[in-house]
Write a protein that binds this DNA or RNA. Sequence first.
DNA 1: GTTAGTGCAAACCTTTTGCAGCTCT
DNA 2: AGAGCTGCAAAAGGTTTGCACTAAC
Lengths: 170, 170
Amino acid sequence: MAQDSMQGSLKERGVRLTRQRQILLELIDKTGEHLDAERLYQMAKEKDPKLNRVTVYRTLKMLKLGGLVDELDLMHYGGDQHYYETRLKQEHAHVICLRCGKVEEFFGDPLQKLRKQIESHFGFQVLLARTEVGGYCAHCQTLRAREVEVARVAPVTPPKRARRAAARRP
Amino acid sequence: MAQDSMQGSLKERGVRLTRQRQILLELIDKTGEHLDAERLYQMAKEKDPKLNRVTVYRTLKMLKLGGLVDELDLMHYGGDQHYYETRLKQEHAHVICLRCGKVEEFFGDPLQKLRKQIESHFGFQVLLARTEVGGYCAHCQTLRAREVEVARVAPVTPPKRARRAAARRP
DNA sequence: GTTAGTGCAAACCTTTTGCAGCTCT
DNA sequence: AGAGCTGCAAAAGGTTTGCACTAAC
C-alpha cells in the first residue's frame, strides 16, 4: 500500500516506473525498515540479477529528494552506511542498542513538541527531523557489566568492517 | 577550560598527553563546535605542519569512545563527513538550514522529556542522543520560493563534493 | 625502558560520475 | 522518436589499518 502511494507520487512528477524501480519500491515497502543500500541491492539482485548497485543508489537518492523515504544513520552502529525507511508513519525516534544492535522506535509527544518549538522559536520551516538515541537495551544492560570485567583481562576489538565486506565478496 | 577537564579525564585513564593531542584538544575546545576531521586537520597543521591526518582521526575516535566529544552529521549538508563538538553543554538539537547551511542549537525541555520517556518506556540506558532537524531558516524561506521558480527554467546542480576536494588538493 | 602513540603508505567501504546503450511513454 | 534510465568501469570522498619509528611516562 505504501508502494502504491509512492508509485502514484512518482508518476505525478513524470518519473518513469521502470522494472528496477518497481522491484526496489516493493522491497522498501514490504521489508519495512532500516535497509541500507547494500542489503537492498542484495535483495534486489535475487529478483533481477542484472540490477546494478548504482541503480540502487540512484533510486534511493531520488526517493530521498522526493521526500518519499527518510535517511537514517542509526548512530553508525554497523558502519557508516545509511539506512532508509518509508515516510509514512508518524514522526518517531530510533533507539539503537550499542551492544546487540536492536532498533526500537519511539513515538511520543516530545517529538511533536520539539518540532513546534523549533518552528516558533527560530521561525524555521522544518522539513526533516531525525532523532537517534544510543545506549543499552534492558536485556544488554546486565550482560554489559560482565563484559567490561572480562575485557580488562582479554580485550577484543570486533572487526566492524570485516563483517560487511565478507558478505560482499563472491 | 573544557580543555582542562578533558585533559584531566584523559590523564585519569592513563592516556598520554602528546603534543599533537594538546593541539587538537585546544582547537576543539576554542573553536567550539562543528568541526569536521578535515578542517580540524587543516587548522592543526598550521600549528604543527608534521601532524598527520590519521592522528586527527585517531584522536577523534578516542575522544568519542571516551565520551568527551559528540559526533554529528548535520543532516549531511556539505557531505558525508562527521562533525564534532565537546560534550559540555546541556543536551541540544541541531537545526540546519538546507539552503545556507547555518546551524542553530536548540535547548529545550522536549529533549530531556524525550530521553526520560525512552528510558522508562523501554528500560533503556541512554548514553548518546542526537537530534538533527533540517529545513529552511527564516531568512531563506522567502528566497527559496524565488529559486524554485528560476530552477524550472535553468536547473543547476551545485557540485557538493568538488568544493571540499578543491580545498584539499596541493 | 616500556608501552602507547605517531607518521607514512596503502587499503578499505560507501557513494558518485561519465558515458554508451537501452527502454519507457 | 526522444528524454529518461540503466549498466559498467572508474573515480571520488571519508576513514581505517599495518608497520616501523618516536616519544611520553
